[in-house]
Computed example of a mutant assay.
Amino acid sequence: MREVGLDGTGPVHSGWAPPGEILIHSEVLRSRPEVTAVVHAHPPAVVAASVAGLPWLPLVGSYDIPAARLAHEGIPVWHRSALVRRRDLAEQMVTCLGARPVVVLRGHGLVAVGEGDPAHAVAQAVTRALAVNSLARTMLAVAATGAPLRAIPDEDIAELPDLGPAFNVSAMWRHLAARAEHEGPPVPLRT
Rank of each mutant, 00 (worst) to 15 (best):
V77N: 08
V126E: 14
Y63N: 01
T138R: 14
A125Q: 05
A71E: 02
M93W: 04
H182V: 02
Q124V: 01
H25I: 08
R137I: 05
R80E: 10
H72M: 01
P188M: 08
G61R: 06
A41V: 02
L6P: 07
E183G: 07
V12A: 12
H40S: 13
P185H: 12
E115V: 13
P148F: 00
V126P: 02
A112E: 02
I152F: 01
A143S: 15
H108Q: 04
D156Y: 01
G146I: 09
S81I: 00
N168V: 04
T95W: 01
L140Y: 12
S134M: 05
A147T: 00
G53I: 07
I152Y: 03
E183F: 11
V4A: 12
L83F: 13
A123L: 11
G98W: 10
R137N: 11
P188I: 12
Y63P: 00
A129T: 07
V187K: 09
A48L: 14
H42N: 04
R128H: 15
T95M: 03
A37F: 06
R190I: 12
A177S: 14
R80P: 00
R85F: 01
D88V: 09
I157L: 05
Y63C: 04
P118N: 09
R106D: 02
P11E: 14
V104T: 00
A136F: 08
V38A: 13
A131T: 08
L140T: 12
I152T: 03
T191I: 10
T145K: 06
A49P: 07
L140N: 11
P66W: 07
G5R: 15
A123H: 13
A112M: 01
D162I: 01
V28K: 10
M172C: 06
E159D: 12
L160P: 03
V111Y: 05
G164P: 03
R179H: 12
S26R: 09
G107C: 02
L23W: 01
D156S: 03
A123W: 06
V77P: 01
A71C: 15
C96D: 01
A49K: 09
A49S: 14
T95C: 01
V38E: 14
P33A: 13
R32I: 09
T145C: 10
A131I: 07
T95Q: 14
A67T: 07
V102G: 06
A82R: 04
A125K: 06
R87D: 03
P66V: 02
G74S: 07
A37R: 13
L23G: 05
E91H: 03
A123T: 04
A141K: 07
V47Q: 08
W78F: 15
